[in-house]
């Protein structure tokens, strides 16, 4: 896979979302990014048909975190055969909400002068990690204690070879609230806040000389925990 890391938040590798053969010659590929607190869908539209394409527009179905286009799909000139245009579509997270399976699924409709086409894609929920997600230390301790252990999920993150995990995670708005070293284990206590106000608390355990990290996640909405652990994996390995 591509290395989607610039300075800042993790961005996944670009993938083809809609194949030309299924969309009368329109190929759509793309990725997502969070830049300066704004979620963006970076889309490439390629015309693989023999006629010009125009009148592009986009709509999302309701989704788990209320992601919705915050503006029009700006394709300013008609797209000739074999041409590609790159568009950055800003997204808001205040649209209509409906729980999807998987939770991070997005159903998209794109229209042009020829027809309407549909595709699904998945986004890393780290797109939804906000910049003010560092929890107050006292609140962290109280919340950690308050969330029942039934709501705790544990994950192994294998083959990590990093010496600045904390900095790397902070680039994607995973904040270290406290760090302690106990018997050659670094215990990092971390907080994340999602755009919908859900807080996620985590303990990342890094043993000296052991490339396998242990991540424990506590959240009042435990269904998000596995998606958070996927983000740790992607961020730490990219």
């Amino acid at each position: 896979g591509g290395v989607g890391m610039t300075s800042g938040s993790y961005s996944p590798p670009r993938v083809v979302w809609l194949q030309a053969m299924k969309a009368k010659g329109l190929e759509i590929s793309g990725t997502f990014a969070r830049r300066g607190g704004v979620i963006q869908m970076d889309v490439s539209l390629t015309n693989k048909a023999m006629s010009v394409m125009s009148d592009f527009a986009v709509q999302f179905n309701k989704n788990s975190f209320g992601m919705a286009p915050a503006g029009p799909l700006q394709v300013l000139t008609p797209l000739g055969p074999n041409q590609t245009v790159e568009v950055s579509l800003p997204l808001s997270s205040t649209g209509p909400v409906m729980k999807m399976e998987p939770l991070n699924n997005l159903q998209v409709a794109v229209k042009n002068n020829i027809d309407v086409f549909y595709f699904s894609c998945q986004y890393p929920i780290s797109l939804l990690f906000v910049e003010d997600g560092k929890m107050d230390r006292q609140v962290f301790l109280a919340t950690w204690k308050d969330i029942p252990s039934d709501n705790e999920a544990q994950f192994q993150i294998k083959d990590c070879h990093l010496n600045a995990a904390s900095n790397k995670l902070q680039g994607s708005n995973i904040f270290t609230v406290a760090k302690r070293t106990v018997e050659a284990q670094d215990m990092l206590y971390q907080s994340i806040k999602l755009t919908n106000g859900i807080w996620v608390l985590a303990e990342l355990r890094i043993q000296t000389g052991n490339p396998n990290y242990t991540l424990s996640v506590k959240c009042r909405a435990p269904e998000v925990s596995q998606y958070v652990s996927q983000c740790y994996e992607l961020i730490l390995k990219n």
Partner: peptide, 20 residues
Amino acid sequence: ELEDGLDEAFSRLAECRANP
């Protein structure tokens, strides 16, 4: 004093989690 208390509480949490 509060800060000292919080430092101490995190140390206890880490100890307790590392050696349950």
